[in-house]
């Protein structure tokens, strides 16, 4: 147990905050997309840099990964990775309400990623009295079958990260994607402080 691990209370508190945020985010998304959006119960765990490689490369058929950085007050920051499978991404333009020739596949992926990430994190930030800003979302290069190679080439400047995994499903459009929020070491300390404050207020 290091200073970067969450206590049981902290973990429960974060889980509850995320559950509430997911409920609100799915409601907002459903209104905007005009269809039901299902979010599966999230998983929260601490993860080693080397395990992240494994987790991501285990996901077979990953067609694309979109990354978007987020940062708020009190040192809350991290990176959202949204991963897509070939078979679940055919109708994203349709889902977003665009005509087929209006935007490329890459742009569809980037657009939906940004909407999912920012909608969820905005609601989550409100839960912890914070406010998020975001980087422009980026499609990670040449993901086809070599995401793990890509990640192996990266040298992480962190050993441990808090990993929050949320799965989005829109059955009407056979859409499915995984959102992985990664919060690196220093930001974990900051989020623990926030959680302790919230716990103290109970």
């Amino acid at each position: 147990m290091s200073e970067f691990h969450l206590t049981e209370d902290q973990q429960d508190c974060l889980q509850e905050l995320i559950n509430i945020a997911m409920g609100q985010a799915s409601d907002q998304l459903a209104r905007y997309l005009d269809t039901f959006v299902y979010l599966k119960v999230p998983s929260i765990e601490s993860i080693d840099a080397k395990d992240l490689l494994q987790t991501l490369s285990q996901q077979k058929n990953t067609m694309a990964v979109v990354s978007q950085g987020f940062f708020g007050y009190e040192g809350i920051r991290g990176e959202a990775l949204l991963s897509y499978q070939e078979e679940d991404s055919g109708r994203i333009g349709d889902l977003l309400g665009y005509e087929p020739d209006e935007l490329s596949q890459d742009e569809q992926l980037i657009d939906i990623s940004s909407i999912l990430t920012t909608t969820f994190l905005n609601v989550f930030a409100r839960q912890i009295d914070n406010q998020m800003s975001y980087n422009a979302p980026k499609l990670l290069p040449s993901v086809q079958n070599c995401l793990s190679e890509h990640l192996q080439e990266m040298t992480f400047n962190w050993d441990l990260a808090l990993k929050i995994n949320i799965n989005y499903q829109v059955t009407d459009y056979s859409f499915n994607c995984n959102m992985i929020l990664l919060i690196p070491e220093t930001a974990i300390i900051n989020i623990k402080k926030v959680l302790d404050r919230i716990l103290a207020e109970f």
């Binding site: 980037i110 905005n122 499609l139």
Partner: peptide, 27 residues
């Protein structure tokens, strides 16, 4: 400006109250 596409994008900003982006790599 591509009116239909941009209107939809702008309405997402208003409705979801979230930022949106457009990179030179796509457009």
């Amino acid at each position: 400006l591509p009116e239909r596409w941009l209107s939809r994008k702008l309405s997402a900003v208003l409705q979801l109250n979230t930022p949106s982006f457009c990179s030179w790599q796509q457009r």
